[in-house]
Write a protein that binds this DNA or RNA. Structure first.
Lengths: 187, 187
DNA sequence: CACCATATAGACTGTTTGGTCTGTTTTCAA
DNA sequence: TTGAAAACAGACCAAACAGTCTATATGGTG
């Protein structure tokens, strides 16, 4: 076999980047192919399900990306709600600003465009959210919160962050994101 | 003139409905035309700017729709944070459920797909958000909050609701939306 | 009644879409 | 060394896309 899938990873990463910036439907297969350097044959070899299967992989990959960022923030602030929420917000705000307010949540747009029509993409989205809630909730628990209160707090922080990533994009401002970090750091 | 724009309103409403459910790029002009009953000539007569101009009008219309719902909730609960937040959440959850978890926020998907590339649509989105924050903030102020705390609370409730509308769709559940109402009602 | 801007109507066009299909190259195991 | 599976490669296709164009109907006003 050809060294093991030279193009597969490039395809997934490029798809994630484009879906994040301009959405699922606006990102044509030809654009993804161009920017990843892969030919069409490779796409349909690795993803027989076509664009929808690629989107599922892109959502999984994006879930991983955010989970790693959250784990890194947890390592630095394992039992400090305010510091953890602030670090989470600071990273998202930084990513947003340095992309010209284009790179918000890497799964939100794709999910809104395809869920619930496409169950596989929705399931990938649910997996990503579950993982994020687990990580955020573990910090809340470590900082002394009861298990169910910690879970509620984690859910709420993630929801507020998702909303802030929309508002920040519309307003071209980091403030809505940083506000979420401050608000949930003060609970 | 022909009775004054028979098709204009139908076009905007249909566009809003389709953009809300399946996104901006996935909603073809021909589909919007079919479902609204308008011919292509009327679309380009009323919206010389084409699809993007129609999207701007659809976002404005959606901003109005949500603003009216919030004003109705404010009339019922002018100075009761918990009741107001609960009513807001209950309405959004109801709309979501009765559409089979398809009708979330009527502007979020379109904004994520087009902002910041299209400044006119982004501006319409900002106008809608400003109006919503004003209404929600006025309830917080009436219930005894300081002006700036009320504004922060309003921003946060709206951000959390936007996020919950994504999560609810992915999970096919009203719970994330109702949770936001409870959490922000308990502040 | 006649005029004319407003609005309706849809055929048509060049481009792009996601997807299929037929080969060729690479790599490992036998 | 050779056979076969895995991966690469891109020409090709029907359908759908946003947008243009020309023609027709409508109805208030002079």
């Amino acid at each position: 076999m050809a060294r093991v899938a030279k193009h597969r990873q490039a395809l997934v990463q490029t798809a994630m980047r484009l879906f994040r910036r301009q959405g699922y439907a606006s990102s044509g297969l030809n654009q993804i192919l161009d920017e990843s350097g892969a030919p069409k044959g490779s796409l349909y070899h690795h993803f027989p399900g076509g664009k929808e299967a690629l989107a599922e992989a892109a959502v999984d990959h994006a879930g991983e990306l955010i989970a790693e960022m959250l784990e890194s923030a947890r390592e630095r602030h394992p039992a400090d709600l305010a510091a953890f929420a602030g670090a989470y917000a600071a990273t998202m705000a930084e990513w947003m600003a340095e992309s010209g307010f284009r790179s918000g949540c890497p799964i939100a747009t794709t999910l809104l465009e395809t869920t619930p029509e496409n169950a596989a993409i929705a399931a990938a989205g649910a997996r990503a959210l579950d993982r994020w809630v687990d990580i955020v909730g573990s910090v809340a628990r470590q900082s002394g919160m009861q298990a169910d209160a910690a879970r509620r707090w984690a859910h709420m922080l993630i929801c507020a962050m998702e909303g802030a990533l929309i508002v920040a994009r519309v307003r071209k401002s980091k403030v809505p994101i940083l506000d979420v970090g401050r608000y949930f750091g003060a609970q």
